[in-house]
Design a protein around this nucleic acid. Structure first.
Length: 541
DNA sequence: GCCGTTTTCGGCCCGACTGTTTTCAGTCG
């Protein structure tokens, strides 16, 4: 903190020398700019202006929220703001104006034309721009207090599109709003609510997964509500159990796939139920952030893919959705950690293989766990992307700490045979490369293998002491039987693995064994058959 | 108002649920 203040002081001295008095006196903060542009967006929306113009203002707010530098400093340094994403010539000019004068004439104009308080009305849950506009037009309401009074006096339900229920809800919500503002919980309190509820839901028979998604999973500093995702069949009684939870005070809405309740504390919890094939897509969807999801869907659109909570679809056909990794991979992206999903540059970083490294912590936990285990050892391993240029997506200093690396191609399937083969060969030269996972990338009936010279790859594996996976997932079976035989003939060891993303998936092992047997493999060819000591030897290069 | 590996105009994310309607608009996430 001290150093930040120090640098500002230093900035002041420079400004004085340059004589830029107006900038000195204002010191417009990013939050000031966000507030002004946000208010413009709200008022434009209430006014019924072009929704895409509204969105442009909101996007600008987000862009500024994601900046680590002060916009005022950027302006001072002469940076062209229109180079920032979502800012064109017009908005860049308006932002410059705010920095230089502290105000925006457009906002002042609209506030005098409509009323500044209208933006507060949007904070009432259930009221959007259309209803706020109607309340203003029909009853001249401009503040939350006026709205509360109108609802009390029963004047709201006469407006077209409003009814008794809406009026009642307005009454409740305005009371809450006036009482304490919008409630957000700290992570500790959120955890105390979320974990027992999730544990309760996991006990419902037939429920395969229960995950708390939303800002809780993103570990945002405060949590506005809880979004819980469950995987089970449609006829599962989980919804009944959910609304019957002892801490539920009110059921806000209830449907087959989604319900919302308020807990006694007033905290809102949503439960969404999805089928197993949609688990990954739904988890992404409900983890958010909304902005990240929008950016993801846009990428999908460009690739002719429709992304929703049920999967990634090409036309009517679901091409991904079971896991988050699968959906990201369809978009040509590696997995992005939930904590990064804010649309603040993480997608671009993922594209370039420059996501921050967050794996060392796990290694320390495994060390700690192993100390308490007898006759059982957890190995440290990770699945790595083979990037387009054949490098791996974690640095050597991280890989050095691992017992095992599982490397695979997850995007850019459409390279030529030579390019794809060279990519993998180059990756194998990395001394930390251990296992090549699902070596052809095929999904049976859904995606053809990418073109690759398997014989070259096996020879390189043999040379470099790398191991090839026989992925036992019934949608993959990769290596296939023919390739298993090729591995045996060339003296390449294989590993059978299930690609398990949940406990039940371990049952897939039998399919992998089936392929290995069809490929003439014997126990000695398969490293799963080794004891720990021999396995470690095999994993050394 | 922004934007472009189907580009300088014509698009702009998508579905569930509620309340108000009598087939859908509005809101939310």
């Amino acid at each position: 903190m001290v150093s930040v203040i120090g640098s500002l002081d230093f900035g002041f001295v420079c400004d004085l020398e340059l004589g830029i008095w107006n900038l000195l006196n204002m010191r417009v903060h990013n939050s000031d700019i966000e507030a002004i542009l946000g208010a413009v967006a709200d008022l434009l929306e209430i006014k019924g202006d072009n929704p895409f113009r509204v969105r442009a203002y909101r996007n600008a707010v987000r862009t500024i929220q994601g900046l680590s530098q002060s916009v005022a400093d950027l302006v001072r340094q002469g940076q062209d703001l229109s180079e920032l994403p979502g800012l064109g010539k017009d908005l860049a000019g308006k932002i410059r104006e705010i920095v230089e004068t502290g105000t925006l004439p457009l906002l002042a104009e609209m506030q005098s034309e409509m009323s500044a308080g209208l933006t507060d009305l949007l904070k009432v849950p259930g009221l959007g721009p259309k209803r706020v506009a109607a309340l203003h037009r029909e009853l001249g309401i401009t503040t939350v207090a006026e709205l509360a009074r109108a609802a009390e006096e029963g004047r709201v339900h006469d407006i077209e599109g409003f009814g008794k229920k809406t009026e009642q809800r307005i009454l409740e919500e305005t009371a809450k709003l006036q009482q304490r503002g919008a409630q957000r919980l700290g992570l500790v309190v959120a955890e105390q609510i979320a974990e027992p509820l999730a544990a309760y839901l996991r006990q419902v028979p037939g429920v395969q997964e229960v995950v708390v998604a939303g800002s809780y999973r993103r570990q945002k500093e405060t949590v506005g509500d809880l979004d819980i995702l469950a995987v089970c069949r449609k006829d599962n009684p989980i919804m009944e159990r959910f609304i019957g939870y002892e801490d539920v005070r009110q059921v806000v809405s209830q449907g087959e796939t989604r319900s919302t309740v308020l807990l006694r504390s007033g905290f809102q919890v949503d439960l969404r139920v999805v089928p197993e094939v949609s688990y990954g897509a739904a988890l992404m969807y409900f983890t958010g952030s909304k902005e990240h999801n929008i950016a993801i869907r846009k990428i999908g659109q460009a690739k002719k893919l429709k992304i929703n909570e049920y999967g990634a679809f090409r036309g009517e056909k679901r091409v991904a959705g079971r896991t988050e990794e699968e959906v990201y991979a369809k978009l040509g992206l590696p997995f992005i950690e939930p904590e990064l999903r804010e649309d603040r540059g993480e997608i671009e970083a993922a594209r370039k293989g420059r996501l921050p490294r967050q794996v060392q912590e796990q290694g320390r936990e495994i060390d700690h766990t192993n100390k308490g285990l007898k006759g059982f050892t957890v190995l440290k391993a990770t699945e790595l992307d083979i990037l387009e240029d054949g490098s791996l997506d974690l640095p050597d200093e991280v890989l050095r700490e691992l017992d095992l690396t599982v490397c695979s191609v997850h995007y850019k399937f459409n390279l030529s045979l030579k390019q794809q083969t060279d990519r993998i060969l180059k990756a194998m030269e990395n001394p930390h490369f251990r296992i090549l996972a699902h070596p052809t990338g095929r999904l049976i009936g859904a995606r053809e293998p990418y073109p690759v010279d398997m014989e070259e790859i096996m020879k390189a594996a043999q040379r470099n002491g790398c191991i090839l996976e026989v992925n036992a997932h019934p949608e993959r079976l990769d290596l296939n039987d023919i390739h298993c035989k090729m591995a045996k003939d060339l003296g390449v060891k294989v590993v059978l693995s299930t690609d398990a993303h949940r406990l039940n998936d371990f049952d897939y092992m039998r399919f992998g064994i089936g392929q290995a047997r069809r490929g003439w493999l014997e126990p000695d060819d398969v490293i799963n058959t080794r004891n720990l000591k021999d396995l470690r030897k095999l994993l050394k290069r």
